[in-house]
Amino acid sequence: MRINPRITDKLARIVLNTQAFFTVGILVIIILIIILKGAPHINLEFILSAPEDMGRHGGIFFTIIGTVFLVFLSILLATPLGVGTAIFLTEYTKESRFTKIIRFGVESLAGIPSILYGLFGFIFFVIKLRMGWSLLAGVLTMAIMILPTIIRTSEEAIKAVPRNLRIVSYSLSATKWETVTRVVLPSAAPGILTGIMLSIGRAVGETAAIIFTMGSSLRLPMSLMDSGRTMAVHFYILAREGISMEKAYATALILVLSILFINIIAYYIMNRVIAKYS
């Protein structure tokens, strides 16, 4: 007997609704667990004091500094490279075999898992270039890793700038570079910023690529050649080696909160852009 299509229709709606809310439920549960378990152990002292006894006591201040150094420097390197690539692909060339090859390179970089970045950074920066486990090796590895994200989001943002604005700029006797810097980039800036924010989020949460390049020293990195520990690596070590569950949860909360914060900013910027151009 054929089932009545109306009943199937209702059934489908119910099943899909349930699955969607189940998925959101997972997210809510994950966030709730981290907040409930982490919040009681967080205070200003936890954030602002140095870790003691492998992180069993004290705070995570050095790891926050390590994270900030790593993220800031890798973004500083990857942004001009990424935005420059995006400008080249969108403004300075037509679609050709050459751009196809570059896009293939970008897509491939985006697909490489972080452990392979770790493997590469370890052999190339740490061993061959004799940087040792250092902030510099971590920064260079991370910069390559986030490059594809920045290129792709910048390209999308630049492509969304109406062609008319470029035409007007050229008609007012602007050169290509003047048009790019004075019209295209200002209009694309929020979209580019969103990409940078997403990259920051990725860099903050990364472990596999960092632990083998930047190392996991709990001292404060005083130079580019010093090893250091990011929050994510610290959390991993706390959790995996069972050093302190309390500190692990608290670190996880700070980690998730900072990524949440970065995502919200990125989303806010993105929505403003959508509102502006629609």
């Binding site: 997972i26 997210l27 994950i30 667990i33 981290i34 989020g201 903050v204 949460g205 990364e206 472990t207 596999a208 994510a232 959390f235 991993y236 959790a239 692990a248 996880a252 980690l255 998730v256 990524i259 949440l260 970065i262 995502n263």
Partner: peptide
């Protein structure tokens, strides 16, 4: 946002 949560946190949970 699920994508933004670091993989170590997933592992831990």
């Amino acid at each position: 946002l699920l994508a933004g949560i670091p993989s170590v946190v997933y592992g831990f949970l």
